[in-house]
Simulated assay, not measured.
Amino acid sequence: MALTEAKVLQDGQTKLWKHTFSFAVSMALKCAVDLRVADIINSHGVPISLSQIAAKIDSPSPNIPNLERIMRLLVRKEIFSAHQRPNSEETLYGLTASSRWFLHDSELSLAPFISLQNSEWLMAPWYRLAQFVKESVPGGSTGFSKCYGSEIFDFASKNHEFNKLFNAGMESTATVMVDAILTGYKDGFSSIGSLVDVGGGNGHMISKIVKAHPHIKGINFDLPHVIAAAPKHKGVANVGGNIFEAIPKADAIFMQRVLASFNDEDSIKVLKNCLKAIPKETGKVVIIDPLLDLENEGPFDEMIAALDLSMMMLCKGGQERTKLEWQKILEASGFLLNRVIKIPAVLTIVEAYPA
């Protein structure tokens, strides 16, 4: 075998090993979040030793050797940094730009999202992935429903613990994205008198929009069991209902990570209800979702491709969409795509007006 051919095969094997054990990184990351390792380090203000980390872990007898092995992997993945204490063999662990994103007490924290995505509830459906290639049943079930006997939103309405975890995870991503959205769509919000946040959860996003644009009358619209747990926000009315039946009337409709949960047929039904809720001449719909790009290699493109699979497993007909796919379902709903606004985040702003 030629040297170059052997090198190619070895590189292929290396990449395969890496992908096979990539789950270990996710689990180690979840472990660090659960143990609040980043918060412990941050509370000291400087890099600290394993024994100092272990002393603050909520356990009477933490296993320091096991912690060291977990930290070793996370340092290699640049989640944490490692430094040698001067004149000592002891290693000190510090934060990096990545670990600062899962500090629990930070306003911009992805800790709840990491806990949600790596929970047993959302990991188990992935074991059904091959079935989605073998089976071709129109309107079939999801990996989630195969595990739990009901679709994810129905399950959340009956399981308080999961509902709390799900809402916290969604809120954390909305919080991280809100500044990029407010900046990227500043001119769009300025012309709106009233705005409905469809699938707004606990109202965090719409409250931020209203705070930045006090002239807007905000409506947080979601399923009744979600609204029942939503806090009150100044300038925002909480309204429960079903997006497949009717949407509260307003100048504009805002939807973040909503239509990715549905197939084209259901998305068109939702968009047609949006069309009924807004003024024919001046109304608009603002969709905030990842944009699936099959050609470019942007910083989030690989993750969006993975998100597409996640939506397939968790939501019946769930999918991320390309610009052309958005254009098609918008036109089928009575809208015209006006513009696509790229922002420095995993999400993209899609704006459309009544045709």
Rank of each mutant, 00 (worst) to 15 (best):
A6K: 10
Q10F: 11
T14C: 13
K15Q: 14
H19E: 12
S22D: 10
S22T: 15
M27I: 09
K30L: 13
D34Q: 05
D34P: 04
L35C: 06
V37N: 10
A38N: 04
S43N: 11
P47T: 02
Q52N: 10
L74Y: 02
V75I: 05
R85N: 14
N87T: 08
S88T: 08
S98Q: 14
W101R: 12
D105T: 13
P112H: 07
I114A: 02
L116Q: 02
E120I: 12
A130C: 15
F132V: 07
E135Y: 13
G139R: 07
G140M: 00
G140V: 02
T142M: 03
T142H: 08
S145G: 06
S145I: 05
K146L: 08
N159W: 02
E161V: 03
N163E: 15
A168P: 01
S172Y: 00
H215E: 03
L223A: 06
V226N: 04
I227K: 01
A228D: 15
V236C: 01
F244R: 02
A246C: 12
A250Q: 00
F254Q: 02
F254N: 00
F254W: 13
M255H: 07
D266E: 11
K269F: 13
K284V: 05
I287N: 05
L294E: 14
G298E: 00
P299S: 10
F300Q: 06
K316W: 11
K323M: 14
S333V: 01
L336H: 15
I341E: 09
K342W: 13
V346A: 10
T348F: 04
I349V: 14
I349W: 06
A352H: 06
Y353T: 12
